[in-house]
Amino acid sequence: MNYDGGQSLDILPWGIWTVGYKSVPAQLLAIVESWNVIAKTWESLKLSWVGESANDAQEFNARLQSLQRQLFGASGEPRTPGLVEQLCVIAVKAAMNYESADVANIIMLKDFADAINAEPLPPEDAGSGAQPFGRVPPDITESPVIERFPNG
């Protein structure tokens, strides 16, 4: 069996974390601001609808508000997270899981290397600050998940 003939998948945990914790939430704020402008404009138009148009407008407004709650969540007790927030949380947790697996592999390989009589390597700078993974993640310029095909 040819185990090298398939595709591979590279996961960049800091890239997933950056997308889930920084990029999407920042873009979401802009979307919510625009959504609020649309909602305020719609509310000001509400008074001018009459007859069947008023019913259509009211139905449209109810669907619009429902969609807003589903996408962005709803405040109140209990607070309901929206789809976008849930996806961000999933991305951040996935990044943390990938990083945990990487750290476990590093520790395992370090313990293995320590068991072998060899010259020690110079220490690495662990970084500082409150950044995840003990270092500042690089800027993300492409997808943090990359598929690689053997012939592509």
Rank of each mutant, 00 (worst) to 15 (best):
P81Y: 00
E43Q: 14
L45G: 15
L87A: 11
T41M: 06
V24T: 03
G20A: 06
K22C: 11
L83W: 03
A94I: 14
N97I: 13
S34A: 15
L71C: 04
T18H: 03
I16T: 03
N55E: 09
A94K: 10
K40V: 02
G82L: 01
P25L: 01
A39D: 07
Q70W: 07
S75T: 14
S75D: 14
R63E: 03
W17P: 01
Y98E: 09
E99D: 15
N36F: 09
W35F: 12
E52S: 11
C88N: 07
F72T: 05
N36D: 15
E43I: 05
I16S: 00
S44N: 14
E99Q: 15
R79C: 05
L47Q: 12
A91C: 08
G15S: 04
L87G: 11
Q86S: 12
W35C: 12
G15I: 01
A30M: 11
E77L: 13
V37Q: 10
S23M: 08
T80K: 08
L64D: 01
S75A: 14
E85S: 04
N61M: 06
E59K: 10
P78E: 04
L12H: 07
W17I: 02
Q65F: 01
F72V: 03
A26H: 10
G20M: 02
G51D: 12
E77H: 10
N97A: 15
T41N: 10
E99T: 11
W42V: 05
S48R: 11
N36A: 13
N55V: 08
V19C: 01
F72I: 04
I90K: 09
Q68H: 09
Q27C: 12
A91Q: 04
Y21V: 03
L67W: 13
Q58E: 14
V19R: 01
D56I: 06
V50F: 10
G76E: 08
L28N: 08
G51T: 05
A57Y: 08
W49A: 13
G20F: 01
Q58W: 03
W17D: 04
L64Q: 05
N36P: 10
C88D: 03
E43K: 11
G15Y: 02
V24Q: 02
W49C: 12
V24M: 08
M96W: 10
V89L: 06
I11P: 00
V19A: 02
E77M: 12
Q65W: 02
I38G: 01
S75R: 11
S75G: 15
A30D: 10
W14R: 04
E77R: 12
G51S: 09
W35D: 12
S48I: 14
M96K: 15
M96N: 15
L12V: 08
S34V: 13
A26R: 10
L87Q: 12
W49M: 11
E85Q: 05
L71E: 04
V24I: 15
F60Y: 09
S53Q: 13
I38F: 11
A30H: 09
A30T: 10
W42E: 06
N55A: 10
